[in-house]
C-alpha cells in the first residue's frame, strides 16, 4: 500500500490529536516537572529547590503510607477484581435468563461519578450509621469493625469499593472476550464431552490471554488514578492512614499549599503509574509472542 501513504497525509492525520494531546496533557506534565524542583506555593514564586522535594519524600511517612495503600488497592484489583470480573462474566454470559439486563445493571456502578461512589459507601461502611455494621448487629454479631476511619481496615475497604465500582466494566470486557472465542471450538469441545469446568480451564482461559492482558493494563492504570472515592469516603483519614497516592498529592498541593512538593509527588505518581502499565503492556506482548 506504499503508494497510498505520504508523510504529509500522515502528519495531517496525526496532527489534530497530537496537538490537543500535547498541549493539554504533555505540556502540563512538563510544567509539573518544572515546578517539582521549586518551592512554589501556588501563588508566589518560591525559588529553586533542586531535588529537595524529592528528598523530602524519603522522610515523609504519609507518602509511604499512601504508596502502601495504593499497593493494597492494586493487589485487590489484580487478585480479586480481575478473577471475579472474569467469573461473573462467565456467570452472566447467556445461560441465565435476562442475563443481558443483568449485565447492564452490574455495569451501573461504573457509570456513577466516583465522588458519589465515595458518598454512597459512607452510608454502608460507616462504623456507626453504616448498613454493614447494622446488619452485623441484626444477625447477632457483636463486633462492629471500623471498616473505614480506623487505623487498619480503611485501605482494604477502599480497595473493595474500587472493586465494586469497576467490576461491571471488567465484566463487560471479559464478556466481549468470551464472545470472541470461535464458536466451533466451544461446540466441538462440548460435543467431545468436556465439562463446563474443563472448557473453562483448558479452552477459555488460555484463549483469552489477550483479554486478560487488556483488563490488567486498564486496571493497573486505573488504580493509580483512584482519588475521588478516597476523598469522599475517608478524606484520607485518620491522619492520612487511608491516603492513596493521588489523594495525598491533592492534600499536599491544595490543602497545605506546598505546590512544589505536591508536583514532585505528582511526578512520582505519574512515573510509577506509567512504569506499572508499561510493564503490563510489555508483559502482554511477550506472552503473545511466546504463543
Amino acid at each position: 500500500m506504499n503508494w497510498l501513504t505520504t508523510r504529509r497525509s500522515f502528519a495531517l492525520m496525526v496532527a489534530p490529536a497530537l496537538i490537543v494531546y500535547s498541549l493539554y496533557m504533555i505540556y502540563p506534565i512538563l510544567y509539573s516537572l518544572y515546578y517539582s524542583f521549586t518551592r512554589f506555593d501556588g501563588v508566589s514564586a518560591g525559588g529553586f529547590a533542586g531535588l529537595d522535594n524529592y528528598r523530602q519524600m524519603a522522610h515523609d511517612d504519609a507518602f509511604w503510607t499512601s504508596m502502601r495503600n495504593t499497593g493494597v488497592v492494586l493487589g485487590i484489583a489484580l487478585f480479586l477484581l480481575v478473577p471475579l470480573g472474569f467469573l461473573l462474566a462467565i456467570l452472566l454470559s447467556g445461560r441465565v435468563k435476562g442475563s443481558g439486563a443483568l449485565r447492564a445493571l452490574v455495569f451501573a456502578p461504573a457509570i456513577i461519578a466516583p465522588i458519589l461512589v465515595g458518598l454512597i459507601w459512607i452510608f454502608i461502611l460507616d462504623p456507626k450509621i453504616g448498613l454493614v455494621n447494622a446488619f452485623l448487629l441484626a444477625i447477632g454479631v457483636p463486633a462492629q469493625p471500623q471498616w473505614i476511619g480506623g487505623p487498619t481496615l480503611s485501605p482494604y475497604s477502599i480497595g473493595l469499593v474500587y472493586l465494586w465500582q469497576q467490576i461491571g466494566f471488567v465484566l463487560t470486557i471479559f464478556y466481549a472476550g468470551l464472545r470472541m472465542l470461535p464458536r466451533d471450538v466451544m461446540e466441538a469441545s462440548s460435543l467431545d464431552g468436556a465439562g463446563r469446568w474443563q472448557q473453562l480451564r483448558y479452552i477459555q482461559i488460555p484463549m483469552m490471554r489477550e483479554t486478560f492482558g487488556i483488563v490488567t493494563a486498564l486496571v493497573v492504570t486505573g488504580v493509580f488514578k483512584v482519588f475521588e472515592l478516597v476523598y469522599a469516603l475517608t478524606g484520607g483519614g485518620p491522619v492520612h492512614l487511608s491516603e492513596v497516592m493521588v489523594s495525598y498529592m491533592y492534600h499536599i498541593t491544595f490543602t497545605t499549599q506546598q505546590y512544589g512538593y505536591g508536583m514532585a509527588l505528582a511526578v512520582v505518581v505519574f512515573v510509577v503509574g506509567a512504569l506499572a502499565s508499561a510493564a503490563t503492556f510489555l508483559g502482554n506482548r511477550r506472552k503473545g509472542e511466546v504463543r
Binding site: I122, I129, G149, T234, G237
Partner: peptide
C-alpha cells in the same frame, strides 16, 4: 469521642 469520628463529617 464517637467511634465514627474519622468517617463522619463535621456536619454529621
Amino acid at each position: 469521642f464517637p467511634s465514627n469520628m474519622n468517617t463522619q463529617t463535621y456536619a454529621q
